[in-house]
Amino acid sequence: MSGGVHDMGGRREEFGPVDRTEHEVQDWERLADAVNYVLNAKGHKTTDEMRRAIEGLEGYREMGYYERWAAAAELLAVEKGLLTQREIDERAAALEKRWAGE
C-alpha cells in the first residue's frame, strides 16, 4: 500500500489524537477560499486541478490548510497563463513592505 503524501487513509501510526481546537478563520484564509471558488465558477480551473496542485506541493505536510489553498491558486494562475510568477512575487513583496511600514 502506498499513495501520495495526501493519501492519508489508515496512516494512524503517523498521527496522534484529533486536535479539536478551532482557530478563527483569518481574512487571508477567507480570501484564499473565495479566490479558488470564483476561479472555478468562472471556468478557469477545476476542483481536480486544485487537488492535483495541492497534492504536488513540496511543503504539503508543513503548510497550513489555507496555505495549501493559496499556493494552489497561485500555481494554477501561473500555469493557466493568467499571471506570471514574477508579477506575483513583486506584488507580494510590495504588500509586505507596505504592511510592515505602517
Binding site: Q26, W28, G64, R91
Partner: peptide
C-alpha cells in the same frame, strides 16, 4: 497576519 501566504494570496487576488 503572520503567514507569508497572506500577502501572496492578496497579490494574486489584486492582480487577477
Amino acid at each position: 497576519e503572520s503567514s507569508p501566504w497572506a500577502a501572496r494570496i492578496r497579490a494574486v487576488e489584486e492582480l487577477l
